[in-house]
């Protein structure tokens, strides 16, 4: 069946890779964006210095399956809850897989998970591990036919 006429086409995983807050280190975000692209994902990249509201705006409008926050500034305990709140406001919380990458101290990771972060990927995480995690954990859309 041709790609456009049927409904059999698999939807590619759509991700937003976002840099939040005052944090100019985007190498990691670029590397993961490219790795996701090469894994066949559609990656929207936010650019630097985004406020939590901007990230929520982008995540909602782009209707992404995965939101990957890259934070190396140490402000994760402040920024992540704001993003989560915003997603909730637009009803996008439950079906967005939220992952965090960057410099997150071990002691803070459980706290982030309790807030609703699905996984934290620190430096040295093999790319494939992150990709596999996303593939396995992307949430089905509530209004998709079951």
């Amino acid at each position: 069946m041709s790609a456009d006429s049927g409904g059999e086409r698999a939807r590619p995983v759509r991700c937003l890779i976002a840099k939040v807050g005052l944090d100019g280190h985007d190498r990691g975000a670029h590397v993961i964006a490219r790795a996701f692209r090469d894994a066949g994902f559609e990656v929207v990249y936010s650019g630097l210095h985004r406020a939590p509201e901007e990230i929520v705006q982008a995540a909602v409008q782009e209707d992404v399956d995965v939101l990957g926050l890259s934070i190396l500034s140490g402000a994760h305990n402040t920024l992540v809850p704001k993003v989560i709140e915003g997603l909730e406001e637009y009803g996008a919380r439950s079906d967005t897989l939220l992952i965090v990458g960057g410099i997150i101290p071990e002691a803070d990771r459980d706290g982030l998970r309790d807030m609703g972060v699905a996984a934290v990927f620190g430096p040295g995480t093999p790319m494939q591990e992150t990709i596999d995690f996303v593939r396995e954990n992307v949430r089905p859309r509530p209004d998709d036919p079951v």
């Binding site: 590619p12 964006a33 490219r34 996701f36 692209r37 090469d38 894994a39 066949g40 994902f41 559609e42 990656v43 929207v44 990249y45 936010s46 650019g47 982008a58 782009e62």
Partner: peptide, 10 residues
């Protein structure tokens, strides 16, 4: 890969 990086939001 069929994947893409969509950078217009930057």
């Amino acid at each position: 890969s069929g994947g893409s990086v969509l950078g217009d939001r930057i």
